[in-house]
Design a protein around this nucleic acid. Sequence first.
DNA 1: ACCTGAACACCGTTCAAGT
DNA 2: ACCTGAACACCGTTCAAGT
Lengths: 179, 179
Amino acid sequence: MPRNRRPRDREEKSAEIVAAAATLFTDVGFEKTSLVSVAKVAGVTTNTIYWYFESKEALLVAVLDHLLAEALHGVDEQAETPLVDRLLWVVGRLDERAKLVTTVHALATTSPVVEAWHDGFHAVTNEILADGLRQSGIPEEQVVPMTRLGVFAIEGLLMHPLPEAEQRAVLRLALDGPR
Amino acid sequence: MPRNRRPRDREEKSAEIVAAAATLFTDVGFEKTSLVSVAKVAGVTTNTIYWYFESKEALLVAVLDHLLAEALHGVDEQAETPLVDRLLWVVGRLDERAKLVTTVHALATTSPVVEAWHDGFHAVTNEILADGLRQSGIPEEQVVPMTRLGVFAIEGLLMHPLPEAEQRAVLRLALDGPR
DNA sequence: ACCTGAACACCGTTCAAGT
DNA sequence: ACCTGAACACCGTTCAAGT
């Protein structure tokens, strides 16, 4: 029982693993990142990862939670700017993580853990976008399909890089319609 | 030189491998399908696959070409029906292959072969959709963003299953705008 | 030209053993 | 409770060898 092992060691170690995984997953990609390389960066052994996380996919979910919290930090201060700009801001922040967007969709069809995270993520983002639309005075029966189209547009923009002017054109079209 | 080896053996064998891979990739998923299982279904050895295809990803591209040709067969006869219904028809036909849609996007970021196929696919579908929009009398400067939004909507519908009535609502909104 | 057997390097995961 | 060494089963891929 060494006295230098403080009680927050657990969260620290786990946080280091998540941080290492977050960098590698976004840069190298989830599939191409081996747990050995995650362990190396985090300064632990492969098996240690399994003490903290049930599987590689469970580690991915922890990474996603971490990045989401990070990405959402600051979205509140933007409550005053127009909806289109707010969405554009979100797209800009998520752009470096684009690789993970496709990874999540690919894994959601086979991995229950990832599927659960994906469903929860959509529930949250749908709610945020739907609220924004209602406050813009969109008639209630159009809120649901427009929310869906808006989310599809955001996902599409993340998966297919485009200059910002064209991103804006697509989002405006999705929210305001032609003209 | 056995006399029962006909000259079309090569295409036959390769077609059998593609057919086996097409079934397994769509049902089990690309990542979860091992080349051993493909070989077993096709009645060959794993190494034989490498005689016909450069890699597992090259085999995927062959499968995609095969399925695309199959899916596009019959789209011409629909030239008279409204654009929304035509897109809905395409979505319906691709729905069982939804797993592959996400796989292609996931691999496109790391595999040049798959990225090339993905780019070509988008070029073709963009053209088809843009032509349809022009014939519907959409003003030229709106054709490009509307095509993009339309493709994003289709991909979104493939990645997130929805009842047909809601699929139609999203597509109508993308093409006709609110009201 | 076409196909195989046997190996290679690597992967996610497990488990008995240590502290 | 936490971590490790060593192994497991499996994977995509390669290559020398056969016909």
